[in-house]
């Protein structure tokens, strides 16, 4: 991208303008995500930077909204924070409950999506797979079909079959939504997969099971893990299906946020947002490390 020495003035000007434009677009991408972090520490119930905050006066900042998050829904939030306070927090805090639901649902949905998705991806990446294109299109469709249609369909289906208001129902729905991501990431890994490795294993006398667990699995594992993380994030971020099919005690974090945004958009919502940004940063880092490891293993990356 470096500018050649012989570039004309016009080209020079354009080149720098271009870089400035790109910088602005990067700002557009990232600023909305970062802006919630300082604002969540606002001491005032406003959504803007107060004067004190701008002067970096410590009294302009506080963790009151994080505190509010913890205590919201607790039976007796005001007593001293001993073991029974924490027990109350664990059992009754609304956000804690939402977090527990999110994790339970996300965990099982991920397991289901990853297991079924990986298996299918192994089949799909075989040359002999019949009707490959058609089947692939069906399997990816939960990502493409508007979520409101999926949620509506599930609402009727679950009401009819008794799955409404059950954890199982939400888990199945979230697994369905996560599956396309698993398929995409795992098949992408398998595209670069050298089939001669499995042949070598087989020719050396390994059983198909041994070959799979000793050769295939370690190589596609990064792809499987990325797929699993995608599936988890999909479930962790999903609100529409939960709105349609979940019972009142199955509120997840996004469902709770949805209420918060519509009704009382206090900086407490920004505190949740900040926590979620931290989580997504961690997930992204994991994914990136995995991707690089996988590229290194396959000799695709400079480092």
């Amino acid at each position: 991208m470096a500018l050649p020495k012989h570039a004309s003035t016009l080209e020079r000007v354009w080149h720098y303008t271009y870089l400035v434009i790109c910088a602005l677009i990067f700002l557009f991408l990232i600023a909305p995500i970062l802006i919630v972090i300082p604002l969540s520490f606002n001491a005032e119930p406003y959504f803007t930077f107060t004067e004190k905050m701008l002067k970096l006066d410590p009294t302009g900042y506080s963790t009151r909204w994080y505190d509010l998050l913890m205590t919201f829904g607790m039976i007796d939030p005001d007593r001293t924070r001993d073991a029974s306070w924490w027990a109350d927090f664990w059992a009754n805090s609304s956000w804690m409950r939402a977090a527990k639901n999110s994790v339970i649902i996300g965990f099982f949905a991920t397991i289901l999506a990853t297991a079924l998705g990986t298996l299918a991806a192994l089949g799909l990446s075989r040359a002999e797979m019949p009707a490959r294109r058609m089947i692939m299109a069906i399997l990816i469709s939960p990502m493409i079909v508007p979520i409101i249609i999926t949620a509506t369909g599930l609402f009727f289906f679950y009401s009819m079959s008794g799955l409404a208001n059950t954890y199982l129902g939400i888990i199945l729905a979230h697994a369905t939504l996560g599956i396309p991501f698993v398929i995409i990431t795992v098949t992408a890994t398998l595209v670069g997969f050298d089939q001669s490795l499995t042949r070598a294993a087989a020719s050396l006398g390994a059983s198909p099971q041994t070959t799979f667990f000793k050769i295939t699995m370690p190589l596609i594992l990064p792809g499987v893990i990325s797929g699993a993380l995608f599936a988890f994030v999909t479930s962790f971020d999903e609100v529409v299906v939960v709105l349609f099919v979940a019972a009142h005690d199955q509120q997840t974090i996004p469902r709770q946020m949805w209420n918060g945004i519509r009704e009382q958009i206090s900086p407490a919502i920004l505190a949740v947002a900040t926590i979620l940004v931290v989580i997504s940063t961690l997930l992204l880092t994991t994914i990136e490390l995995l991707r690089r490891r996988s590229e290194r293993l396959r000799g695709l990356s400079p480092g």
């Binding site: 339970i104 799955l163 208001n165 059950t166 954890y167 199982l168 129902g169 019972a247």
Partner: peptide
């Protein structure tokens, strides 16, 4: 226990 709770939660209602 987690699995069990989840499985039961559906019927607990």
């Amino acid at each position: 226990t987690l699995i069990l709770t989840t499985a039961l939660a559906g019927f607990a209602f």
